[in-house]
Design a protein around this nucleic acid. Structure first.
Lengths: 190, 190
DNA sequence: GTCTATACCAAGATAGAC
DNA sequence: GTCTATCTTGGTATAGAC
């Protein structure tokens, strides 16, 4: 039985290079028009070489979204209120429409329970919902959100707003998505 | 140059038959797995024959979404409040996950301004936003929504909620999407 | 230094849009 | 039928554990 040795240092570095390049290409170029061929060329690999690292295009995109989540977390590491952080991510996203499109298209496709990224999104939404509900409870304690509100419901609503507003913002929007999120949070005051 | 005669009666009927079949196949089968090949087979046409009616796969799906909008409108023709109608459509959609997936994936993809359905969504969102804002104003008049609220913002938020909650509902959701919409509308009371 | 899993590539199979 | 996209197969070269 072949024991796994894990990736070599070279492979680890290449993986990171691929993710960085993919984030950049997709941010500029959009999701639909980004082929494995193009991504492979951007990092000096053949298509087979690229797929060696990720197995499939879908798995690669899943890894790109994980990398984006990490980058978002680092960028907003200062703030400790998750609701503010969510809004600041939404604000930042208006500068990277290609990534927004990747996220929305991919999450919609992954609704199919047989999609390889289905579980990724199930867990991501669960985690985000739990953490946001906790943030809502904290705000209820300090009186900036009505104590009568249901934290889980509010968390679900905030995520839906974030997703839905960013989709709409690709088609003109009277008001900025982040500003609308702020506005809704304001409506939750006691 | 040949003058256009427009579609013959036979063509019109076939177009409708294709749309009906497509709605059914997609509702059952989902969006990703529905190829032009499969749709052509379902209505007894060759692929070329199918594409003759719609020009491209994207145009066909756009037509499917138009047909769905019409069907939704007919089904909820009784109610005259658009907010209630929106919520009832969301409720109905939980029975046709394939169509929800078509809609969310397609709208996300069409965020690209070069996508052939981009304008369709721009107009659809504009129209829906205007009509919903009008419905909000009506509710402000009869006192069920706070007069201080901005009708356009509320309309945008309700659409985002509808889209976002339906995406999340593909990945488990504590509460039903329609119920959460109702809940949010309740929060808008004076 | 040996050995084998990892890092890649060339060519082609497959499938979908048109 | 043609073109383009993903992914597989079957291979060589090299990193790095022992």
């Amino acid at each position: 039985m072949a024991t796994s040795r894990g990736p070599y240092a070279k492979g680890v570095a290449k993986r990171e290079e691929i993710l960085r390049a993919a984030l950049e290409v997709i941010a500029r170029h959009g999701y639909r028009k980004t082929s494995t061929r193009e991504l492979a060329a951007a990092v000096g690999l053949s298509e087979a070489g690229l797929l060696h690292y990720f197995g499939s295009k879908e798995k690669l995109f899943e890894a790109v979204l994980r990398a984006r989540d990490e980058a978002d977390q680092e960028r907003s590491a200062g703030r400790d209120d998750l609701i503010d952080r969510l809004i600041s991510v939404v604000r930042h996203n208006s500068d990277v429409p290609g990534l927004v499109q990747l996220y929305s298209t991919f999450s919609a496709e992954a609704g199919d329970s047989e999609h390889s990224a289905h579980e990724f999104f199930v867990e991501r939404y669960d985690r985000l919902r739990d953490a946001l509900a906790e943030a809502v409870r904290a705000r209820q304690s300090d009186g900036t959100i009505d104590a009568a509100a249901d934290p889980e419901k509010i968390a679900t609503v905030l995520i839906a707003l974030s997703d839905g507003l960013q989709i709409q913002s690709q088609f003109r929007l009277g008001t900025e998505a982040a500003e609308l999120m702020d506005h809704v949070v304001g409506l939750l005051r006691p």
